[in-house]
Amino acid sequence: MSDSPFKGTTGIKRILNATGYSLAGLAAAFKGEAAFRQLVLLSVILIPLSFYFDVSRVERAIMIGVCLISLVIELLNSAIEAVVDRISLERHPLSKNAKDMGSAAQMVGLTLVGVTWLLILFP
């Protein structure tokens, strides 16, 4: 058991609380992060489009999965940025590194989306 006062619930109550926190996080990202909204729009286009192409179920699952992975990366990138900004708005090399690495993770994620879709659609 953790010493954190925020870890007191168990069972169904914990699941319900976690669901609420997750939905609040999605709402905050959608409201406050333009990059997240852009990726949601891209996913809203690409995921249904994946059903248009004559690909196997596994290929379609991979095409959808990489879109969702990119959303996950952006949520983590936004979380890193929020924590860094919460600690201090002062310019610091470590803060810059943290933000740049989060951005680099998203660049890799978007490259993964593009390469995956291209390899599946144009073998």
Score class of each variant (00 low, 15 high):
2 S>E: 06
3 D>P: 05
3 D>C: 03
5 P>W: 05
5 P>E: 10
5 P>T: 06
5 P>G: 00
5 P>M: 03
7 K>N: 15
7 K>F: 09
8 G>F: 04
11 G>E: 08
11 G>Y: 09
12 I>H: 11
13 K>M: 03
13 K>Y: 04
16 L>I: 13
18 A>Y: 10
18 A>I: 01
18 A>S: 14
20 G>Y: 00
21 Y>H: 10
23 L>Y: 06
24 A>H: 05
27 A>G: 08
28 A>S: 15
29 A>H: 08
29 A>W: 11
30 F>R: 06
31 K>F: 00
36 F>S: 09
37 R>W: 07
39 L>S: 15
42 L>G: 09
42 L>C: 11
42 L>E: 13
43 S>E: 06
46 L>A: 15
46 L>Y: 02
49 L>C: 12
50 S>G: 13
51 F>R: 02
52 Y>P: 02
53 F>P: 02
53 F>R: 08
53 F>D: 05
58 V>A: 15
60 R>N: 00
61 A>W: 04
61 A>F: 03
66 V>C: 10
67 C>H: 07
68 L>F: 13
69 I>K: 11
71 L>M: 05
72 V>Y: 10
74 E>P: 08
75 L>D: 05
78 S>M: 12
82 A>L: 04
83 V>T: 06
84 V>A: 11
84 V>F: 03
87 I>N: 03
88 S>F: 09
89 L>Q: 09
89 L>S: 14
90 E>I: 01
91 R>G: 07
93 P>L: 06
94 L>I: 14
97 N>F: 14
98 A>G: 02
101 M>C: 08
104 A>I: 06
104 A>M: 14
105 A>S: 13
108 V>Q: 03
112 L>N: 09
114 G>I: 07
116 T>W: 01
117 W>C: 11
117 W>A: 14
118 L>K: 00
120 I>R: 10
120 I>N: 09
121 L>R: 10
122 F>G: 07
123 P>K: 10
